[in-house]
Amino acid sequence: MSNKDDKLTRSEAGKKGGEAAAKSHDKDYYEKIGKKGGEATAKSHDKDHYEKIGKKGGEATADSHGDDFYEKNGEKGGEATAKSHDKDHYEKIGEKGGEATAKSHDKDFYEKIGKKGGEQRNK
């Protein structure tokens, strides 16, 4: 206890209350209040708010994790996606990506990547 009068600080009281709540509530309870809080937050914040907190969280994660973390997560996500999608899905997204790339790149771009691909093949 940090106060002279043997009173709990706000932080200590919050921790104590949180620990007590954790003992008396189950996962379902926390899911419900989390959903309720998320819905309330969504009503009071705009897209800009979520972009800012997403960027902040992404930067914090990048600062605390190395390349290995992202490689493992990417591999895990790729495996999960492969299990839930068939060849047709990949053909569709490949075509969509190709169309988007074609709109944003000119003939020079394709000549350069074609040359790079040919060089790699000849090694």
Rank of each mutant, 00 (worst) to 15 (best):
G57K: 14
H25P: 05
G74V: 10
E39N: 08
K32S: 02
G54F: 15
K55F: 05
G57I: 06
G38T: 08
A22D: 00
K72M: 08
S44N: 11
G57F: 13
Y29I: 00
D68V: 12
G57R: 10
D67R: 07
E51K: 11
E31H: 02
H49I: 15
G57H: 11
K27P: 03
Y70E: 09
G54A: 13
H49G: 10
G54V: 13
H49E: 08
G57N: 15
D68F: 09
H65V: 09
D67S: 10
T61R: 11
A42H: 05
K43E: 07
G58W: 15
K52S: 09
S24D: 08
K32N: 02
K47Y: 14
I33P: 01
K32G: 00
K35D: 08
I53F: 09
D67C: 12
E71W: 11
K32F: 02
G58K: 11
G66R: 03
K52M: 14
G58P: 12
T61V: 12
D63R: 10
E39M: 11
S64Q: 06
G38P: 01
E59Q: 13
G78W: 01
K76N: 06
S64N: 03
H65P: 07
G38I: 01
E39W: 03
G38E: 00
G77Y: 02
D46T: 10
I33T: 06
K56V: 03
K56N: 06
Y50F: 12
A22H: 01
H25K: 06
Y30L: 06
E31F: 00
Y30C: 04
G77T: 13
H25V: 05
E79A: 15
K36D: 00
K52I: 14
S24I: 13
D68T: 10
K52Y: 00
G74N: 04
A62S: 15
K52T: 09
E71T: 07
E51L: 11
D67N: 14
D26V: 03
Y70M: 14
E59G: 01
G38S: 07
Y29E: 01
K23F: 00
E51Y: 08
H49L: 13
E31C: 01
K52H: 05
E75F: 10
D68E: 03
S44L: 11
G37H: 04
S24M: 06
E75I: 08
A60R: 09
A40V: 04
G78Y: 01
G74C: 02
S64D: 09
G37Y: 02
T61M: 15
I53D: 05
H65R: 11
G38W: 04
D28N: 02
Y70D: 04
D63L: 10
K43Q: 14
K72V: 13
K36W: 11
K52R: 14
K36T: 01
A22P: 03
A62Y: 15
D28A: 05
K43C: 09
G38Y: 08
K47L: 09
I53P: 07
E51M: 06
G58T: 11
A42L: 12
K23D: 00
G34N: 04
G37C: 08
K32A: 05
N73R: 10
T41A: 14
E75R: 05
A40L: 04
N73T: 07
Y30V: 05
K36A: 06
D26P: 13
Y30E: 03
